[in-house]
Design a protein around this nucleic acid. Structure first.
Lengths: 226, 226
DNA sequence: ACAAAAGTGTTGCGGCTACACCCATGA
DNA sequence: TCATGGGTGTAGCCGCAACACTTTTGT
């Protein structure tokens, strides 16, 4: 029964890069570290994996505790194992990224933790190897966005094609031709046009669309050349 | 100093899906499990992460011990954390896949461990969640192959374009048009034609090519539509 | 009238596919 | 001479990028 007992055990944590979209910018939710070492630096939200808990369950627990979010979209980035990555003790960390719709997370819970949304174009210094995690997370998010309509996870339920395009411009940090983007997205046949219009961003008014759940799940044709 | 001490520690292992190419087939190196439970099933090569050792170092150590290979190409798949995935004890496993050139591994070392190369089209039953790991590993390998010439890691130093095409057909489990494949690969401008020819597979003789190390490293244009 | 977003149409280029077609040579 | 792989060329299709153009309406 003790086949493995001559091997060492390790602390195993999860760290979550939480992406959100506000003010036409892709943002990351970070928490300030209040004690030395690395006081004043910022940190991804993390926590230790408990007994009888998978890493995904741990990530969901951490996300719920800090943002109030449930049923959030979650994807594993990779696992970071440098023995000295945490100066306090050896901790193996499984990285996740999460996508948070701005209309669903709990502002109060977030504030209580002193968290702050940072635009990904101007991130502060982060502890340990968290900057590396964020870089890998962003690449993964771009890959996902290149093959599926990510509006469902980051925009409100109803959104205009311009809002979706601005989101993609924030994710890929480049501009897309409005006409071509519209045609490409609609050709995928996964959005459903609603009968209501948004007049807040143009005089003419733009139709709202929403994702058809059944179709938007699957992997689509390539949307963006990576 | 004991900030983390109220959290549990876990066994952490690495498991390696070792791919090789022989007889025009993509193969996987598996080891028979000689004891209950799961006797008679086959297993990926694995081992536990030691103190002061990163997961990549652990994977390299395991590969060297079982195949004699050094400087092998290695990539992380993902981390498997279901609490009950190993019935013996809770073990968190970081999956890797490795690419082994058939002319470089040590046949004797492999035989000593009772290992066997299985074509990926007819894999045996495997222990735990190893079949799942292999599935994910193959997808990752296809993604890599779609954007870089993977011949460098799986073929001998010198190879013909037909050999490279057969390798791609084995990886993607579909056929490629010989003329188009040749033109696509050569257009990437990362292979160097040698002055020698291979006469063993055709009467006319086909030029050998080799990878130009400097160029084949970077990510190329898409080779195969995934 | 003008600006700004919504939405549609058009054109040209480049890449991919599906072939046809030569060459060389061993059986 | 025939089959087989080596190697080149080409015509058609499709997707994408660039950009023109029309519509709508608030200022």
């Amino acid at each position: 029964m003790k086949l493995y007992s001559n091997h060492p055990k390790h602390f195993v944590a999860v760290d979550c890069a939480i992406f959100g979209y506000r003010n036409e910018e892709l943002c990351l939710l970070l928490y300030p570290r209040g004690f030395e070492p690395s006081q004043g630096k910022w940190s991804l939200m993390g926590g230790f994996i408990q007994k009888n808990e998978s890493s995904e369950e741990a990530a969901k627990r951490v996300l719920n505790e800090t943002t109030g979010l449930k049923n959030i979209y979650l994807e594993q980035i990779e696992t970071f194992t440098q023995p000295n990555r945490d100066p306090e003790a050896r901790v193996i960390s499984i990285g996740y990224y999460a996508l948070s719709r701005m209309d669903e997370y709990d502002e109060k819970t977030v504030r209580e933790h002193g968290a702050h949304w940072w635009p990904i174009t101007e991130l502060p210094q982060m502890i340990f190897d968290h900057a590396n995690m964020v870089e890998k997370a962003l690449i993964k998010l771009q890959q996902k966005s290149g093959y599926s309509i990510v509006g469902k996870e980051l925009l409100p339920e109803k959104f205009t094609l311009m809002q979706l395009r601005k989101l993609y411009e924030a994710i890929f940090q480049r501009e897309f031709d409005p006409g071509n983007f519209r045609k490409k997205i609609l050709s995928l046949d996964t959005l459903q046009r609603l009968n209501t219009k948004n007049y807040s961003e143009s005089k003419k008014g733009a139709f709202y669309y929403k994702c058809q759940n059944s179709k938007s799940e699957k992997i689509l044709d390539r949307i963006v050349k990576i």
